[in-house]
Amino acid sequence: MTRSNADRDKLVSELMLDAGVPGDALLKASLESIAGLSALPAPAPRGELAALLGVPSVDPDGGTNPDGDELAGRRRRKHRPAIVAGAVVTAMGLGIGGVAASGGLQQNSPEFIQSLIAGWAPQGNPAPPSLVPAGPVPDAPKVTAVPAPSSLPTAQAAAGTPQSLASPSPSAVPGHASTGNAPSAGKSPAALTEKKAEKPHKVKPKVAAAARKEDRPAGTVRPGPSSPAGSSQMSFRDSVELMLNERGRVGGKAVEDVLRRIVRLGIRF
């Protein structure tokens, strides 16, 4: 096995004798310290040497390149954040691309929202709060009171206009009026159909509503219908026709109620 201290002493003494410097204690001590390197333990065999000696390798991977796997692990750890970052950037890119491909919300939002609102209105609600704002209501009586006397001539003169179509509704021409009335009101079709369905129960406001309706064309003041639902006029006409066809002209009274309701809403607006 390894050399003993006596063997090292013998080696050093022989060397010093050969070199012609025997008896130097300091030099001998230093030389013995150098000779002590031979007492190092044999390193544990690894890899091919372990296989050659028939002993199990110190490293489970064979130990031929013990740093290889460790470096590979460190490379994987270094690459992992880059992979995650790449995945995040890709996901964000896909999301942004999807939004861009859809045209964006800002460009299509008005038509898109209008289409949604046109097709979606609360059912069973005779007077939706969104359609009847609190502000304009008090003003309605004033408008009706002042221009009331001059209602008849102006109404006939404007019979061809869409505004006057609502005038014959009180009792004169319930059936015909419905066809020509369509473009006037400018209301959303869904809301109007609902109001018509519930209207038959309310008969009281007919007269007042008629008066207001006739006053309207005289004053030529119709700020309400045009501004909030200007884009839905066509859909209103279609909806009225569709309603009449489906219901098969349920009755003059019902149609009148619908028209009165329309006119009332128009006044409020």
């Binding site: 096995m1 050399r3 390197l37 031979s38 007492a39 190092l40 390193p43 040497l49 000696l53 002993v55």
Partner: peptide, 22 residues
């Protein structure tokens, strides 16, 4: 061979290691 290799390795490996270290 197995015992021979092991005996040779154990006899000289430490000295070779010391020599190469030096």
């Amino acid at each position: 061979d197995a015992e021979l290799f092991s005996a040779v390795y154990q006899s000289f490996a430490g000295q070779v290691l010391g020599y190469l270290s030096a």
